Simulated assay, not measured.
Amino acid sequence: MSAVFTQEKFRGGIAADDKYWEALADGEFRLCRCAQCGTWMVPAHYRCGACGSWEQVWPLVEPLGTIYSWTRTRMAFPRTEARADDVPFVTALVEVDGTDGARIFGIVVDTGTAPHIGDRVRGEIRPGTEKSFGYPTIEWQLVDAPTPAPGAGSTEGARA
């Protein structure tokens, strides 16, 4: 496991989602599920809100889903100054197939086509970098969208 993110862990969390980040670091997309009743627990927490069980499983899930919401970031904020060269970029909240509505955030790859709520996307795991403080990330690619050409235009001017 290459969990470099543990050196720069975000403060204030309860660490229930560590297995999510560890799986991403290993190139696997796993989401938390109650071992007793099967409820998806995203974001992860230690106790199931449906049945009260303390037992979880972390099954492999195909990173495929539908854009539930999205936003375009047009400036780097404090603690994200390292990403200044990446703006503007689109972040989407994706409802993952087969998970009863569990939603995961990720960056949408710029294809020159603006995303829309309801668009189908497929995720690809990227290893942690200095910019991401060692955290691995998931990038969502619009399904059936054209592959971006080198130097392709941004989605600037699209609805945000």
Rank of each mutant, 00 (worst) to 15 (best):
M1G: 15
M1P: 09
F5H: 06
T6N: 13
F10L: 14
G13F: 07
G13M: 08
I14L: 15
A15R: 15
A15M: 14
E22Q: 09
A23G: 06
R30I: 00
C32A: 12
R33Y: 06
Q36T: 15
T39W: 12
T39K: 14
V42W: 12
H45E: 10
G49Y: 07
G49M: 05
C51E: 05
G52P: 03
G52Y: 08
W54Y: 09
Q56T: 11
W58G: 03
W58S: 00
E62N: 10
T66D: 11
W70A: 00
W70P: 01
R72Y: 08
M75D: 11
A76C: 08
A76Q: 11
F77P: 07
T80R: 15
E81L: 14
E81W: 13
D85H: 15
D85L: 10
D86V: 00
V87W: 12
F89Y: 13
T91A: 06
T91M: 10
T91W: 11
A92N: 02
E95Q: 06
T99A: 05
G101R: 04
R103P: 03
R103I: 02
I107E: 15
V108A: 11
V108Y: 13
V109T: 14
D110C: 09
D110P: 09
G112Y: 05
H116D: 08
H116E: 09
D119E: 03
V121K: 07
I125C: 02
G128Q: 00
K131I: 11
K131Y: 08
S132M: 02
F133V: 08
Y135M: 00
P136A: 03
P136W: 00
I138T: 01
E139L: 01
E139M: 02
L142M: 02
V143W: 04
D144T: 01
A145I: 01
T147F: 03
T147K: 07
A149W: 06
P150H: 03
A152D: 11
S154Q: 06
S154R: 11
T155Y: 09
T155P: 04
E156M: 13
R159Y: 12
